[in-house]
Design a protein around this nucleic acid. Structure first.
Lengths: 246, 246
DNA sequence: GCCCCGAAATTTGCATTCATTTTTCGAACG
DNA sequence: CGTTCGAAAAATGAATGCAAATTTCGGGGC
């Protein structure tokens, strides 16, 4: 049930010969490397603040430094890493204030997605969201945290898709990736008040979406993200002050 | 043609006299090239849909292909150009639907900026916006299109800055750059109805901002951008002076 | 006369190489 | 004994070189 995200990055992908299906793979070798490297970093294989070892990654992905550095430049523009002049790349470490800023942008993007979704969503797509909502509610009653999260993410994802706006979807994915590293120590399991509140907010979300009330849905979604941020720990994964492990 | 060729590569602090003050200058050579190339494309020196001539740009900027291609990859991730596998880069050409999508994202970002600005803006910053608003109104009464546009852009820029959110500002600048190519054939001069409407909307914007009514301001700004899009021509910029179209 | 096929020329993508910088390690000095 | 200076080692940034693909241009076939 965990998101059916296309994940061609089987991690290994090192010196293994591309004897599989090169046809589609060749279609965008650079794009493949970019996606793999992005996943590699987003997954947390490198500590925040740590140097990005070019040579090692070259060996791991079986390429030379040129395409790798191209990918690094792109990842820097995406905000995943910092590029220090003559000092290499480092995994971007999020401070508390930066995390707040990113959450606010996510809220704004979801608000926009909700507004657009109200204009464009089909009845079938709405029905699917409604189904997911009820499934999520069932998980909530069961105290099934895992199922709840899965449905939750699926719902937000469907709303973004229903907005039918490619730049929005891309930007949304970008920021979601940047925030993937933050650990939500405030598990809803130990924060039942927030869980109930979130569930009520989702009731409002579904209601507004049902009425195609874009303006309202927009506001609810932004506040929903705000509350989610407040409930989330403002601490990044693996603090590691000077863990510039080599 | 006297080119305002941004050519820092001629004396890129390489050879002699490293004991000057190149510290800040050297700080970002790649960033300089990226900014220059981005401007070069955004300014419309290449026709939409035209191939991006690597060799020519290398000569123009006085660099080799490696840093140029790195910059191209970044610009592709920014959405300014398309990267076709084995077929080079092309200046992205906006279709009508893509332009609508971009405008909607701009509206969402401005809506977010307005909401955040209501939370964080200082009285001084508000006063400055109020001043710009009145100046814009004066330009409106004078039918001074140029002054009106300048104030208009300054106001929206101040709102984004008042939001005090770096990722938002960066994303906003990115989308603004993508839309810079669209030509607004619907000059307000010939569209006085829209001009008056826009002016009224700005009155609402200022009022909501004055009352720090983030929710309202958010909605007004989104609708403001929607109306702006409707008034704008859905036609992309005409072929550039140096039309290397093929 | 038009279309299709094929080789030369240009272009793209990546690897390799080179100069410059940073970092590390060791020794001399205070 | 701690500090600092300096040279070796590693890493970074950019240029060049090379194989593969594409585009272009010419010739042959229908």
């Amino acid at each position: 049930m965990l998101e059916s995200a296309p994940d061609p990055a089987t991690d290994a992908g090192a010196a293994a010969a591309p004897t599989g299906l090169p046809i589609l793979a060749v279609a965008s070798l650079h794009g493949t490397l970019l996606a793999n490297l992005r996943d590699y970093i987003v997954e947390g294989n490198l500590a925040p603040g740590a140097r990005v070892p070019e040579r090692l990654l070259c060996e791991r992905f079986g390429i030379s430094r040129t395409p790798l550095r191209e990918a690094l430049k792109v990842l820097a523009s995406e905000g995943l890493i910092d590029l220090l002049p003559n000092r290499g790349a480092r995994v971007r470490q999020l401070g508390a204030d930066e995390m707040v800023a990113l959450f606010d942008v996510m809220g704004g993007l979801e608000a926009l997605a909700g507004r657009l979704a109200c204009e464009k969503i089909s009845d079938a797509a709405y029905a699917e969201i409604e189904r997911l909502h009820h499934e999520m509610y069932a998980s909530y009653l069961r105290r099934d945290l895992h199922g709840y999260f899965a449905c939750n993410q699926a719902i937000h994802d469907r709303i973004v898709r229903a907005a039918d706006n490619e730049p929005l979807a891309t930007t949304y994915a970008n920021f979601a990736g940047r925030l993937r590293r933050v650990r939500y120590s405030a598990n809803l399991d130990q924060n039942r008040d927030r869980w109930g509140e979130a569930m009520r907010e989702h009731e409002e979300i579904l209601d507004a979406l049902h009425r195609r009330a874009g303006h309202e849905l927009s506001d609810i979604l932004f506040r929903h993200l705000r509350n989610k941020r407040k409930a989330a720990a403002v601490r990044e994964a693996a603090p590691a002050p000077d863990a510039t492990e080599g």
